[in-house]
Simulated assay, not measured.
Amino acid sequence: MPTGQVVWIKHLRVSDWEQRILASADAPAVVVYRTAGSSSQQATVAAVLDEMETTAGQLFPTWLPGAEGITTVAGAAPVAVRRLAVAHAAATGQSGPFLADLAAAALTGSTAHTRRHPPEVRARGLARVIAASFGRPACAVVLRPPDHLDEAATLALAQAAQWLVDHGRLTVWIDSDSPYGIESRPRATQPPRATEPPPVVRPRREPRGSARRTPSVIGKPHPTSRAEVVLEAALARRTWAAGRAWNHTVRPGPLVNPVRVDLLWKRERCVVEIDGDDHRTPAKFTEDRHRDVMLQLNGYAVLRFTNTQVLDDIDNVLVLLQQFLANRRRPAKGP
């Protein structure tokens, strides 16, 4: 997947390439957004930046060192996060006023709070924040436009995508047919010739879901999952938790498709899943049971905890995990 430019990709299926891309430390952090099909380049850019700001708010405080313990807006908390943001910006060469506004908005749950800053500042700052949250060197945006864009909307989308690359130092992958005669290209190259349609990558179609998506992070808790972050912080202080791996793929058997699990102790063949409210739906419940059976048939134990259990009763969760791992590590008795 080319980076640092605009690429049109027909029938992009995120799940097909997510594991491959994120397995590399040099790969960008990837976020997926739907676009409205506007015929205005400026409106398309503004909408993408607003979506990126919402994502940055969800990732807070991962990208702001020192803000991990600030969980309330009461008292001097907003002033504290602004000071932390200004100091962090000075140390990392970012815009202090922009980062301070973004931190304050993330703490209070506000949206589009940084619109007073120039779009160029927003684009570059948001790209750096999202990349830092995932421990990546850069950020890639997947744009999913509506089907059957007219010529004006297609041109606006292409121009907006190139603007994001030029001014935000982003990678932009557009999940759509590349229009004939419009070809994304690195800067300082010759314009495309109308007789040469651009090459199109053709993976399978992924069902269109929510407008915003942040794929999992291999080897660490997902920044948007407070339960995963809290559990990892607790496990990191306990020697018995050594050997764990977050968000890894497990292949239960040679004839079974690999599955992504939240937390894994590979040697003990212990899988831990942290379930949000979406796991209560009939479809998700059925899928979870199928995954559990496949893993259990191939020797894995599956422990499930809800977000509420982790956040409200983490001591009990830790006790259960410690006891289970101790049993798994105990030498088997002879006959």
Score class of each variant (00 low, 15 high):
residue 30 V to Y: 07
residue 30 V to F: 02
residue 31 V to W: 04
residue 31 V to D: 06
residue 32 V to E: 09
residue 34 R to T: 11
residue 34 R to N: 14
residue 34 R to I: 04
residue 34 R to F: 02
residue 36 A to S: 14
residue 36 A to T: 11
residue 37 G to A: 04
residue 38 S to N: 11
residue 39 S to M: 04
residue 39 S to H: 08
residue 43 A to M: 02
residue 44 T to M: 01
residue 45 V to G: 09
residue 47 A to S: 11
residue 50 D to E: 11
residue 51 E to A: 15
residue 53 E to T: 08
residue 53 E to H: 00
residue 54 T to H: 08
residue 55 T to L: 10
residue 55 T to R: 01
residue 55 T to V: 10
residue 55 T to P: 00
residue 57 G to H: 03
residue 57 G to Y: 06
residue 58 Q to F: 07
residue 58 Q to D: 14
residue 59 L to K: 02
residue 62 T to F: 01
residue 62 T to W: 10
residue 64 L to K: 00
residue 65 P to N: 08
residue 65 P to R: 06
residue 68 E to P: 14
residue 69 G to D: 15
residue 69 G to M: 07
residue 71 T to F: 08
residue 71 T to S: 14
residue 72 T to L: 03
residue 73 V to Q: 10
residue 73 V to K: 08
residue 74 A to W: 05
residue 75 G to P: 09
residue 76 A to N: 10
residue 79 V to Q: 08
residue 79 V to K: 00
residue 79 V to N: 10
residue 79 V to F: 02
residue 80 A to Q: 07
residue 82 R to A: 13
residue 82 R to D: 02
residue 84 L to F: 07
residue 84 L to E: 12
residue 86 V to D: 07
residue 87 A to P: 03
residue 87 A to E: 15
residue 87 A to Q: 12
residue 93 G to A: 12
residue 95 S to P: 08
residue 96 G to H: 01
residue 96 G to M: 02
residue 96 G to K: 06
residue 97 P to C: 01
residue 99 L to W: 08
residue 100 A to K: 02
residue 100 A to V: 03
residue 101 D to W: 00
residue 103 A to S: 13
residue 105 A to F: 00
residue 105 A to P: 09
residue 106 A to Y: 11
residue 108 T to A: 11
residue 109 G to S: 04
residue 109 G to L: 00
residue 110 S to Q: 15
residue 111 T to R: 15
residue 112 A to K: 01
residue 113 H to T: 02
residue 113 H to R: 08
residue 114 T to C: 07
residue 114 T to P: 08
residue 116 R to A: 13
residue 118 P to A: 01
residue 118 P to C: 11
residue 120 E to F: 03
residue 121 V to H: 06
residue 121 V to A: 10
residue 124 R to Q: 15
residue 124 R to K: 14
residue 125 G to H: 03
residue 127 A to G: 15
residue 128 R to L: 14
residue 129 V to G: 13
residue 129 V to K: 03
residue 129 V to Q: 12
residue 130 I to R: 12
residue 130 I to N: 12
residue 132 A to R: 13
residue 132 A to H: 11
residue 133 S to E: 04
